[in-house]
């Protein structure tokens, strides 16, 4: 009986992971295809690195990638600062006026359809432009503001859950010893929640780097991000240099995740060893 069940679970997993990974693998394989008709394999001239070479000579792609990187990095930094403040406010100050609204405002951007967020932010920028003359037109600044607004919500979730596990008595001890609240935060709390802040930063960076819908609403003619460039290209159909671009991006992320995986496994193994050592002492 259990044999039959585990066979079912196993085949479901094989199917599920194949479903998740075959499209990505096919994209990688076709990025080495010489034929301009992406999905027709040209066995005479393949595999080739031609599309990679073309990619690195395409100024449009490189400019867009640079812009996206800059926006994503500024966004992640800003979102981490605002998000940590918001997480601190929600976790430590259980009572203040408008706390319910504040809680709603920090979670709503995560569930809201991007079309609505993008539309509303654009309408705000237009209204502000008319009322106070800022921001005049839409560019990297408006994109960054829009990205910060929705990615800070994710930072709040990550940092707040970590803050909830921090031992308050450490902070209280520091306070009793005469440390000022700011010093307590920077010397005690910040190092304890640093891993959450780091993952919040990475998450915010990726959300911004990948965003297409909100960006399309709030960007101007002079500011085309990488996803926008990719989107305008693939709307016309598949193209081989996009496959090459996708392969590079997948590779970067895979290396990052692999490093994380090795770290997680080492930590688990060390824990298991420590536990064993602890039990070995007991006769």
């Amino acid at each position: 009986m259990t044999g039959r069940r585990s066979f079912f679970v196993l085949s479901a997993m094989v199917f599920g992971f194949a479903f998740l990974y075959l499209p990505i693998l096919s994209m990688i394989v076709y990025s080495f295809n010489a034929s301009r008709l992406v999905t027709v394999w040209d066995s005479a001239h393949s595999p080739t690195l031609a599309w990679y070479v073309e990619l690195f000579h395409n100024d449009q792609v490189l400019d867009a990638a640079r812009l996206s990187f800059r926006i994503a990095a500024v966004n992640a930094t800003g979102a981490v600062i605002l998000g940590t403040l918001a997480a601190f406010a929600l976790e430590r100050y259980t009572r203040f006026r408008g706390r319910t609204l504040f809680g709603l405002l920090t979670t709503a951007p995560m569930v809201l359809p991007e079309v609505i967020t993008g539309l509303s932010l654009l309408l705000l920028f237009v209204a502000l432009d008319q009322a106070v003359g800022w921001p005049s037109g839409r560019d990297a600044t408006t994109i960054t503001i829009a990205h910060m607004t929705f990615s800070l919500a994710y930072v709040v979730v990550v940092v707040q859950s970590r803050l909830a596990t921090v031992d308050r008595s450490l902070e209280e001890a520091a306070m009793d010893l005469g440390a000022r609240p700011w010093k307590v935060f920077f010397v005690i709390t910040l190092p304890l929640i640093a891993p959450a802040i780091a993952s919040g930063w990475v998450l915010a960076f990726i959300l911004s780097w990948d965003d297409i819908v909100i960006t399309s609403f709030v960007s101007g003619p002079g500011s085309t991000t990488l996803p926008q460039l990719v989107f305008s290209k693939v709307r016309l159909g598949v193209s081989p240099d996009i496959n090459a671009l996708a392969t590079i991006l997948v590779l970067i992320v895979s290396v990052g995740v692999a490093i994380l995986g090795v770290y997680m496994m080492r930590r688990d193994r060390r824990r298991a060893r420590d536990a064993q050592a602890a039990f070995a002492v007991i006769p």
């Binding site: 499209p23 994209m27 780097w209 990948d210 297409i212 496959n243 671009l245 991006l249 995740v257 997680m264």
Partner: peptide
């Protein structure tokens, strides 16, 4: 991690991958 990995790769490019497969 294998479930998390696609989450970190571009949404747009993963949708695009199906354009090639289904063409």
């Amino acid at each position: 991690l294998l479930v998390v990995l696609p989450f970190f790769t571009s949404f747009l490019l993963r949708v695009y991958a199906w354009m090639g497969l289904l063409g």
